[in-house]
């Protein structure tokens, strides 16, 4: 009963007035109940860069991800939200096989990048991770110079044919990451000496230096202050023109600001997917509604 009342409160905020209460009633009938864990919304898109079908992940005996199917569209920002331990980071790390490094982790299902199953035996993880780059929760620049941080990827993949070529790549990557103006005069200084926000942008520059197709971001702003967060969010909007971005975030405002589509995970299930506007204004699943209205999580 109590939850019902709370839902009505939200309804009042969004649709004030008596006659809207009637619409609210009818809309509530459409809501999927909490016990139902099937995905609602539109997980699939027409022009998909990555497609995931029936993905299951186990950590030892623990079933961390259950039957998740979702597409990542071309040049879109897909935000993944959900309470802690819901499996969104685990799922993100499946997309570039970062989970391979965890011994007890087993992944089942079909994850395709440009119609190629990335978990196929013939697929080499090294070029895959060059195609699907990653930015981590905590800024983790190498304890090397700023230049070497960005140049490392192109160097090991042999992308640069000459020193000047490499210089150009470093410069363009740093420019795309919005860091060039701040560090152009001290490229030889350690990357670890930068501020937290600058370090995270350096990590983004390092990721885009190998020219990936998809960039995975695992709570990239959780260790940053609001100003640095705003910078990184602005950067995401710019990067979207060239890259497909999947971002995991705890911050719902951030998801609303930067993404076009939002996926809500709950305890290993993908509960709801849809356009960000729709998910935040009119969630179709009770769990999604509970989460975005701040009832838990």
């Amino acid at each position: 009963m109590e939850t019902m009342g709370a839902v009505a409160d939200i309804g009042d905020l969004v649709f004030p007035g008596v006659e809207t209460m009637v619409r609210e009633e009818s809309r509530q009938e459409e809501k999927v109940e909490r016990e139902d864990r099937s995905t609602v919304g539109r997980p699939f898109v027409d022009d998909a860069r990555m497609t995931c079908r029936d993905v299951n992940v186990y950590y030892g005996e623990k079933h961390a991800i259950r039957n998740v199917s979702i597409d990542v569209g071309r040049n879109e920002v897909l935000a993944m939200i959900g309470p802690s331990g819901c499996g969104k980071s685990t799922f993100l790390r499946c997309l570039n096989r970062m989970n391979d490094t965890v011994d007890s982790c087993r992944v089942f299902g079909d994850i395709q990048l440009d119609s190629l199953n990335i978990y196929d035996k013939s697929v080499d993880v090294v070029p895959l991770r060059a195609q699907v780059g990653m930015v981590f929760q905590k800024p983790n620049p190498f304890p090397k110079s700023i230049y070497d941080n960005v140049a490392y990827g192109p160097k090991i993949h042999g992308l640069a044919s000459s020193r000047t070529d490499l210089d150009g790549m470093v410069e363009s990557s740093l420019k795309k990451a919005g860091l060039w103006k701040e560090v152009s005069d001290r490229l030889d200084q350690p990357g670890t000496g930068l501020s937290g926000g600058q370090q995270q942008r350096l990590c983004i520059a390092r990721a885009i230096a190998v020219r990936p197709e998809v960039i995975l971001m695992d709570e990239p702003c959780s260790a940053l202050d609001p100003i640095a967060t705003a910078t990184v969010e602005g950067l995401i909007a710019e990067l979207q023109e060239q890259f497909t971005i999947v971002i995991v975030t705890h911050n719902m405002q951030q998801a609303a600001r930067v993404s076009q589509r939002t996926a809500y995970f709950h305890l290993g299930d993908l509960i709801e997917v849809g356009s960000t506007d729709r998910v935040f204004t009119n969630p179709r699943h009770r769990l999604t509604e509970d989460y975005i209205t701040g009832r838990f999580g």
Binding site: M98, R129, V135, F136, K138, N140, F142, I156, C203
Partner: peptide, 23 residues
């Protein structure tokens, strides 16, 4: 050695051996 360094190296596509010897 912090695992974040390992992940950073693997994340840009270094092989396991490269991650070990370089970082």
């Amino acid at each position: 050695v912090p695992p974040s360094i390992r992940e950073a190296a693997l994340g840009v596509g270094a092989s396991k051996m490269q991650a070990i010897t370089h970082h």
